[in-house]
């Protein structure tokens, strides 16, 4: 790891100001950034820690749904979202191991947009709103490809607002080594229809399986997706699974999520 400066602002405004300096990089739970730095794959000159900012932490039930502060660790979401949004809480509780859940944050996960991360599926399937220091971004616009988001240079995710579905469930099939999602499917049923978001499988990261959404909006039963098949085109293939295997898993997990919702 190369040397760097660490600043720990206590407000969003201070953090934004600190990120304005040359070579600065936001640090949340550090679950991706710190290993990259240790391997010398990243060498920011200055890290701006977001985990001491009180206004970015906590889980709170609001009029428009559940608001989760971006610097809230997974373990806290798993506990505190349970009464309001069990599927989201369950997802958070299945990320990594206890030490990962004590450090990793929802904002860090969304901003990193790892194609195998779990949170992007929840955000996209819930039609969540990503709130930043300067604007609000719909989840559908936020995720823009592998490790790519709509965030501008120096822009900080401050919270995530989840509309609460009538029913929802997340199913994750773990990649055996990393236990990230080899495929993860989040199904959420709202009054105006069903949303199905898939992580782990897409070459461009998280995506919605619109065909399944249509079928499930008409008939919210596992059997409704039986006749569908997702094309393997555009899906990831690696030593843990071919695109065809991932396409198959998407369907299996969608059915299981519907059954569990």
């Amino acid at each position: 790891m190369h040397n760097f400066d660490l600043v720990k602002p206590s407000s969003v405004a201070e953090a934004v100001a600190a990120l304005g300096s040359e070579g600065a990089q936001a640090l949340s739970g550090g679950q991706t950034l710190l290993p990259s730095m240790k391997q010398r794959l990243a060498a920011p000159e200055r890290l701006v820690s977001l985990t001491d900012i009180a206004e970015m932490k906590g889980v709170c039930r609001g009029e428009e749904g559940l608001v989760v502060g971006a610097a809230t660790p997974h373990g806290v979401v798993a506990r505190e979202a349970k009464a309001h949004y069990p599927a989201l809480a369950w997802l958070a509780g299945e990320i990594g191991d206890p030490s990962v859940r004590a450090r990793g944050t929802i904002g860090g996960s969304l901003a990193n947009n790892d194609p195998a991360a779990c949170y992007p599926a929840a955000a996209l399937a819930s039609g969540a709103t990503i709130v930043t220091d300067r604007r609000e971004i719909a989840a559908g616009d936020f995720f823009q490809g592998l490790f790519t988001t709509a965030l501008e240079e120096g822009e900080i995710v401050t919270s995530v607002r989840f509309p609460l579905p009538e029913r929802a469930a997340y199913m994750k099939f773990a990649q055996p080594a990393s236990r990230f999602a080899l495929v993860g499917v989040f199904v959420a049923q709202f009054a105006d229809g069903v949303r199905v978001a898939v992580t782990g499988a897409g070459e461009d990261g998280v995506f919605r399986w619109t065909e399944a959404e249509g079928a499930l909006s008409a008939d919210f039963r596992p059997e409704a997706v039986e006749g569908l098949s997702l094309s393997a085109e555009g899906l990831l293939g690696d030593l843990h699974g071919t695109p065809a295997y991932r396409a198959h898993l998407v369907k299996v997990l969608t059915k299981r999520a519907v059954a569990a919702a």
Binding site: P176, A177, F180, L239
Partner: peptide
Amino acid sequence: LTGSYMDYAM
């Protein structure tokens, strides 16, 4: 390709 625990499953 299996140079870390991300891809080598213990």
